[in-house]
Each structure stands twice: as structure tokens, then as C-alpha cells.
């Protein structure tokens, strides 16, 4: 389950996340929809990981602060901070590798 965050609460939400992934997405973006499915499968592999989502169009400043210029961008969160970001498509295994490397 991906919890949507906004400009108002993204800092608090990330700071409260010991380990997880935030996807920066856009409405009507096929690659973003794909990555949402990837995130769901990733969540099954890593049930303890917190899954967050941020709409880049509604929250451009927050997206920029997370280092996301385009959608989809995945931000790996560890110990309350963004450790890595990667833009574009990846499969669940690649996302898992990015998450574990972070």
C-alpha cells in the first residue's frame, strides 16, 4: 500500500521512515503506473519497507527537494533520509537491489 504524501507533510513522513521507498509520480504517466506496480511487488518482497508516493505536479517544490526532476523517480529512504534516487523504469529485482544498496 503506497501512502501519498504532499508538500505539507513530506519532510515529517520521510524523517519518520526507518526504511522505505518514495516514488515521485505524475498522473496519466504510463511509466509511473508501471513503477507503482513494481513498488507493490517490491512491497511483497520487503513487507517492512514503508512505501510513499509524491505527485510531482501537485508538489513540485517537495519533488525538487527530494532530487526528483522527472517522473517516475524512486527515492530510497534509510534512517529518515533519502539516500539514493533513480529516475526511470526498473523491475522489482532492480528496485530491490537499489534498496539494498542504499
Amino acid at each position: 500500500m503506497i501512502k501519498e504524501i504532499t508538500q505539507a507533510d513530506y519532510q515529517e513522513a520521510i524523517a519518520a521512515t526507518p526504511a522505505g521507498v518514495c516514488i515521485v509520480f505524475k498522473e496519466l504517466c504510463p511509466h509511473c503506473k508501471n513503477m507503482e506496480k513494481v513498488l507493490e511487488k517490491f512491497g511483497q518482497l520487503q513487507p517492512a519497507a514503508v512505501l510513499l508516493g509524491l505527485d510531482i505536479q501537485k508538489n513540485p517544490d517537495a519533488a525538487r527537494a527530494l532530487g526528483a526532476e522527472r517522473a517516475p523517480t524512486v527515492c530510497v529512504i534509510k534512517d529518515g533520509a533519502v539516500r539514493r534516487t533513480k529516475t526511470g523504469l526498473m523491475n522489482p529485482k532492480e528496485l530491490l537491489a537499489l534498496y539494498q544498496a542504499g
Binding site: Q57, R70, T87
Partner: peptide, 14 residues
């Protein structure tokens, strides 16, 4: 480079 795209809907806004 990262600025090569195949989907204007996905990547056009910036």
C-alpha cells in the same frame, strides 16, 4: 544522456 526520452506525456513537463 538522461535527456533523451520516448514519451512526451511522461517527460515533457520539465
Amino acid at each position: 544522456c538522461d535527456q533523451v526520452h520516448h514519451c512526451a506525456i511522461c517527460d515533457g513537463a520539465p
